[in-house]
């Protein structure tokens, strides 16, 4: 990649995502109001907040599923602009897991995973299949390889979605409320995979309400409200000593369950 400003291989601790003063409008609705956020390599960031606060929109701006209108977003040294090449480069480096899974229903489980590596990274089929099988093992569904996504349970489907995202060997993984669409008994199996992923050193940004997960692996928790970050802290500090009123109110609402 030849665009100016590319960094050499990032070392641990180097900033891998830098967002400065990010604004976005949907028509006249100001959904993101000057968000600043920095993530270092290997960190796990949890973003929580009430619905409509813009948290999903924000992480979707990072991989250009939404377009930000003001401010800068830099991922792994590449700035996210209208440059097609930059956009594609960034999208290859980021993996995303959706609330609705969004698996490809017309392809088998194994083909869901191998599709992108074969067509985008130009791997051979054998290499792709081998990596896919390793990933299926890692997320715990090796026996489902020849089935279709529709035949899997919700928890298995989301784990497949994680495997599909990992197949491109991304540097960053984004999770947009990965467990919100799951039945309660299946949440744990997905969170376990995410915990393993975090502990293996993946850089992750997770939008979720699962506070147990946050306590376990998050480096920082950000509270989003009204289009911006209200406060952020380490998990211990965040839960025990929230500073803002809005944070306290939100915590009281979600922690009483």
């Amino acid at each position: 990649m030849m665009s100016e400003g590319i960094m050499e291989q990032s070392e641990t601790g180097e900033q891998i995502i830098q967002c400065r003063d990010v604004h976005k409008w949907f028509g006249t609705f100001h959904v993101l109001r000057g968000v600043d956020l920095t993530v270092r390599k290997g960190e796990v960031i949890v973003i929580c907040g009430p619905s409509g606060s813009g948290k999903s929109t924000f992480i979707r701006c990072i991989n250009r599923l939404e377009e930000h209108q003001k401010g800068t977003i830099v991922v792994d040294g590449i700035e996210l602009t209208n440059d097609l090449r930059n956009i594609h480069a960034i999208q290859r480096e980021i993996g995303m897991v959706f609330q609705q899974f969004n698996l490809f229903p017309h392809l088998k489980v194994i083909d869901n995973i191998t599709l992108a590596p074969i067509w985008v990274r130009r791997w051979s089929k054998d290499r792709a299949v081998k990596i896919a099988e390793q990933l299926l093992n890692r997320v715990g569904i090796p026996e489902q390889a020849q089935k279709y996504p529709g035949q899997l349970s919700g928890g298995q489907q989301q784990r497949l979605a994680i495997a599909r995202a990992l197949a491109m060997q991304p540097k960053i993984m984004l999770f947009d409320e990965p467990t919100s669409a799951l039945d309660p008994e299946m949440i744990k199996e997905v969170l376990d995979v995410m915990v393993e992923l975090a502990e293996s050193g993946m850089t992750m940004i997770v939008v979720t309400h699962e506070m147990g997960f946050a306590k376990q692996v998050a480096n920082r928790i950000y509270f989003f409200d009204d289009g911006n970050i209200v406060e952020y802290n380490t998990p211990e500090e965040f839960f025990l000593k929230p500073r803002e009123e809005r944070t306290k109110k939100f915590l009281s609402q979600i922690l009483t369950h």
């Binding site: 665009s3 100016e4 400003g5 960094m7 050499e8 180097e14 830098q18 400065r20 800068t72 830099v74 040294g77 590449i78 700035e79 602009t81 209208n82 440059d83 097609l84 090449r85 930059n86 956009i87």
Partner: peptide
């Protein structure tokens, strides 16, 4: 290491998505 921070790099027009549209 060079950071691109607050400086917007020039996007060559043949790759600029808005221009292309």
């Amino acid at each position: 290491m060079k950071r691109t921070g607050s400086q917007t790099s020039r996007v060559p027009f043949w790759r600029d998505i808005r221009v292309l549209r």
